[in-house]
Design a binder for these strands. Structure first.
Lengths: 145, 145
DNA sequence: GCAGATTGATTGGCATGCCAATTAAAAGGA
DNA sequence: TCCTTTTAATTGGCATGCCAATCAATCTGC
């Protein structure tokens, strides 16, 4: 538990550091990266790819848009949707940016043996599986819709 | 990376759930628990035990104090310090509260073999070690005071 | 075709978390 | 002793993240 908290904290510190030296926070970089991978997409899809709540992503897109790295456009086929896409500046920035996979963590992982690594990956994957199953149960228990 | 994010997210969801059903968020419960373990202590010490920034803990203590679960008192020996301590209500609440070690995670961990568990613990511990070492280096590199 | 349900984005409210700056108190040095 | 530095707590500003509520657009059933 404590280790997890420390890792998360180290990730957040890294995000601050990137922000101070590059002008973009971790989540902002991450969103930019997803847009680079998947091309222009609806805000809802971006949120889904990031496993975040849409209302969270609205704020991130707002800030990226204020920096002229992305633009919102109307989707002609479904006017409820907002197509978020990279600007030219966004693409350039993305090319120069550090990979959003959080440098320090990557460094830490690289220094582990591949056997250790795959064991860690398996264990974490299993944890996620169990915790998300629990979550579904809990949701069902509290509000069965 | 993705697994870590999901685990953290599951923890936050659990915190929301506890809040909805118990009236206290994860960090609030955590602070209460530390006070239960260590007795009355300075805000700074509480922050150190939680590995959080003092300014963060000010807010948590504010909210706990608004709920009459803790009180701030002046330290007669050092008037800069604020002694935070549990109220009677705080102690009662703490006895009834779920353990702050995040139920779903515990459940997930319990279902793993002890061999898997200790391997996971070792791996995470190693990651923390490496990431925190990196952090020191980075701080030194960016601002060598 | 039209009323009612659903869906996508947004807003407002709130809790965490950080940092930088401020204030008050204590410690240290000349 | 007095002045400077350090230390503890707080404040204000900001970014994430959630949820609940709202608004507009789309879809469905009758």
């Amino acid at each position: 538990m404590n280790h997890l908290r420390r890792i998360v904290q180290a990730l957040e510190l890294y995000s601050k550091e990137v922000e101070a030296n590059f002008g973009l926070t971790g989540p902002q970089l991450w969103a930019l990266w997803e847009l680079g991978q998947g091309g222009p997409m609806a805000l809802k899809e971006l949120a889904a790819r990031m496993h975040l709540h849409p209302s969270t992503v609205v704020g991130v897109v707002d800030r990226l848009s204020a920096k002229n790295l992305v633009v919102r456009a109307e989707d002609p086929l479904d006017r409820r949707r907002v197509r978020v896409s990279l600007t030219a500046k966004g693409k350039t920035t993305l090319r120069k940016a550090p990979h959003p996979a959080q440098g320090r963590l990557v460094h830490g992982l690289r220094s582990m043996s591949s056997r250790q690594l795959s064991s860690l990956h398996r264990s974490l994957g299993r944890l996620v599986q169990i915790m998300e199953a629990d979550d579904l149960e809990a949701r069902f228990f509290f509000s069965p819709e």
